[in-house]
């Protein structure tokens, strides 16, 4: 077990070394946020719902590093929990959207023209609905729950992923090395998994990263509107919304979650964007 783990780590490192600097930085940054999402709440000094101070919207202090919120709860602890929910929900929904999107995108290039036409129109239809409106509709109908959120966001971002991966796969499917594999008589699955997919990883990882950023923004939007994550659970968007009154006092309770949100999205964007090492 230890051997295979070490082997996997070595393979992972070798894989990362072959990646373009953009996706590599983005992966490192994502790993950092994952660590916070997993470990953070364990380090939180207080339970997220515990009222610890009578002073609401308190500023930075030694006792409450990031101050308190509108009910006098410890903001630092709540922030750690909020990061966990934001990262978790967005990761799952991105996995869902990109997983299906990539699978269908590649399948569309390998299967008959009709599959592609039907899929393409379906995806275009989905793509034409404004995402926030679509999410509002679904959640209004299905009720606000974390699984519903994940599913909705997964559906919303699938068409984009489908299009990107289809475009990439189409180009690679024309490559001469794919022709060489077909001339050898390789099966469809082998060609997809071994010849086409490895050459898509770089651009695909960038695409997945961007879709994660979109998901974070949409989830925060929904939560800010009160339709996302519901109390007692908390995410970055709902943290901003519930403390929005603190804006007039310049309370950390509204400023800090906003900054964290910006760090998460803008940081990832920057990491993916910069072409030069």
């Amino acid at each position: 077990m230890g051997m295979s783990l070490a082997g996997a780590a070595r393979r992972g490192a070798a894989f990362a070394a072959r990646l373009a600097p953009g996706p590599r930085r983005a992966l490192a940054l994502l790993a950092f946020w994952f660590v916070i999402a997993i470990v953070g709440p364990l380090l939180a000094p207080h339970a997220p719902g515990e009222i610890v101070d009578r002073d609401v919207f308190a500023g930075f202090s030694a006792r409450h590093w990031l101050g308190t919120d509108y009910l006098g709860r410890d903001l630092g602890s709540r922030l750690l929990w909020a990061v966990r929910y934001t990262v978790l929900i967005c990761t799952l929904s991105t996995l869902l959207s990109c997983g299906f999107g990539i699978m269908l995108g590649i399948a569309a290039t390998a299967m008959s023209v009709w599959v592609e036409r039907v899929l393409g129109r379906l995806m275009d239809g989905l793509l034409s609905i404004p995402s926030l409106l679509f999410a509002l509709l679904v959640i209004a109908a299905a009720g606000e729950s974390v699984p519903a959120l994940i599913l909705t966001m997964g559906v919303i971002y699938m068409p984009g992923s489908y299009r990107t991966s289809r475009a990439l796969a189409l180009r690679i499917a024309q490559a001469d090395y794919v022709m060489a594999a077909l001339a050898r008589g390789e099966g469809r699955i082998f060609v997809i998994l071994r010849e086409i997919l490895p050459n898509m990883t770089g651009p695909l990882l960038s695409d997945i990263g961007l879709r994660f950023v979109y998901a974070v923004l949409l989830l925060s939007n929904l939560s800010f509107l009160g339709l996302g994550v519901q109390p007692p659970l908390v995410d970055l968007g709902s943290l901003v919304r519930e403390n929005v009154l603190g804006m007039v006092y310049g309370a950390p309770a509204v400023v800090v979650p906003t900054i964290v949100l910006a760090l998460l999205t803008v940081g990832l964007n920057f990491a993916l964007d910069r072409q030069r090492p």
């Binding site: 490559a175 001469d176 090395y177 022709m179 060489a180 594999a181 077909l182 001339a183 050898r184 008589g185 010849e195 490895p198 050459n199």
Partner: peptide
Amino acid sequence: VARRTPEQRRRVQIVAQNADLVLNPA
């Protein structure tokens, strides 16, 4: 080519012009 037998495919091999494109870079 898909309808040829593996043996038939093995016996005829093609070496294409552009070695840059014909070897999978991955």
